[in-house]
Amino acid sequence: MPTINVNGADIEVDEDGFIVDPDSWNEDVAKYFAAQEGIKELNDDHWKMINYLRDYYKQFQIAPMIRKLCKETGMSLKYVYELFPSGPAKGACKLAGLPKPTGCV
């Protein structure tokens, strides 16, 4: 299994670069992925989205519907793409330490 090194700690990631164990996530992991994604600095809206996704996942063991995510964070899909250039699933979920969404998505 591949790993990434975040501040000296080895964290397991899958072949798509998503972390394997959501519990191994910390804020530094989000910052590490942000740098990979070409996001210069994580601002308040980035964190708002990341925390929303983490809370939702903790409660429901799945990422929320895109429409719900936009509505509950008050962000348009276009703005989510501005924040996370790879989009809500492959960008925001990755930074939030969620597994990569599977299926016809």
């Binding site: 409660q59 429901f60 799945i62 519907m65 599977t102």
Partner: peptide, 12 residues
């Protein structure tokens, strides 16, 4: 396919 468990289905 997407790994949706019941709580996620109901909430959505």
């Amino acid at each position: 396919h997407t790994g949706l468990p019941k709580p996620g289905i109901v909430d959505t």
